[in-house]
Write a protein that binds this DNA or RNA. Structure first.
Lengths: 229, 229
DNA sequence: GCGTTTTTGTTACGTAATTTTAATATTTTT
DNA sequence: AAAAATATTAAAATTACGTAACAAAAACGC
């Protein structure tokens, strides 16, 4: 799981609440379970959640009222409604007061998870980070995004093919990158000529690393190549 | 209605397609209706939509395949699936390949509208947050609305084409913008001469960023261009 | 409307990337 | 050790990209 997503679960059915909590926690989420709408509201105020799952019919404060109050405090937080009622008017009301999704009971727990993930995917847009762009290869640095090697201060731009192949080799560092696998991934099929083409690129990559003997691309006869360092 | 939201509707059932189109247009949306997956894909490439509503079972190209292809070109566009199947596995698959919602037939048209609005509310909101008028590109600022770059205090007004291309590149930041895709979107078709024209504009954009080496427009041979920063 | 400016499109050609070819070398199998 | 399979390398051929210079079209001011 990403960075410990915090879920507020408002559900008065003790059984269902426990099942959901256990399941979601097993999936790596941090779950706070409230047994009624008022407690849920207090908990919402007391802490920072990433998403709310709210049962519509609850004692003391129903789910719609709770959702409206939460929306007043936070216009952006994702809200999923759970409900035993399958009335279309209720669904429309739930969505129109600011809910993002509306799941009717009985529902499969996997479906809830799928909808939860779909919603989180959309709301937590952190796609900027995620790919460590810089990789240290001994004294040589490889900027993956820029397809560039920095060799003793010198900047060497790689071609697309060179970069693709190097990424695959590094991904299998100290382990064999199989010929056929790399060929299919990069060249689309493992024909004779593509295999020779790959050989050409192996040669080119080796030349870039002559100044760094701790890095080597060694051949494993009949199998593929191994990037060792 | 906001600013004329454009919907791509991929639905092979002619009747349902017409009903939905009429209804959504009456609600102020602009609807483009495709009768099968292949036509839908072509239409997606040919213009700019705000949301896609995709039937899962369609001739020539099924909805899941279509959605995957669309997701490859645009990571952010909201997608709602429609389907006659009520299989949980299909719903989970649909959501996990990048769908935002999954509605099973028969459905009430009001429910579709409510879910559509809930999703648009979230995505247009996020867009406002995620794509502000001013975009910082290293030391250079790009005013999207005014199509202007601010380079070391100097104001450089971009032409429409330059701005269109730059916006598409930024939208795919650190990822490949496919040649054919950009050509169809901006130039209408991906003929040889339009491709050369695109090259010319890439050259122009690169010149604007010479003073900011952390920003680069890298060619991915045979595929397209990557705006990295 | 008319000339000017700006923007966009076209063309030609140089450069670079990739694939194909071929000659040679190495490793494995028999 | 010979034969077969596989690998290395340079170089030629092919394909894709980059850019300058020019042409056409659209937008603008008068």
């Amino acid at each position: 799981m990403d960075t410990n997503i915090k879920i507020l679960l408002a559900e008065d059915d003790v059984n269902l609440g426990k099942v959901l909590t256990t399941y979601l926690e097993a999936k790596g989420y941090s779950v706070t379970h409230a047994n009624n709408g008022e407690v849920a509201y207090d908990m919402f105020c007391a802490s920072n959640f990433d998403i709310c799952i709210i049962d519509v019919m609850m004692p003391l404060k129903d789910g719609f009222t709770l959702a409206k109050e939460i929306r007043k405090l936070d216009k952006h937080i994702p809200i999923i409604f759970l409900t035993a009622k399958n009335l279309q008017e209720d669904m429309i009301e739930g969505l129109s007061i600011g809910g993002d999704d509306y799941i009717t009971k009985p529902f499969s727990i996997e479906v809830l998870l799928a909808r939860l993930q779909a919603l989180l995917r959309r709301t937590t847009q952190d796609q900027d980070k995620g790919t460590p762009s810089m990789i240290e290869l001994g004294s040589i640095t490889f900027d993956v995004n820029r397809q560039t090697l920095f060799i003793k201060g010198e900047e060497k731009k790689l071609t697309t093919r060179e970069a693709e192949l190097l990424i695959m080799l590094i991904h299998k560092k100290n382990d064999v990158l199989e010929r056929g696998f790399a060929l299919k991934k990069i060249w689309g099929d493992d024909s004779y000529y593509n295999a020779r083409s790959m050989d050409v690129y192996i040669t080119k990559l080796r030349k870039y690393f002559v100044s760094e003997p701790s890095v080597q691309i060694i051949n494993v006869h009949g199998v593929g190549f191994k990037f060792v360092m």
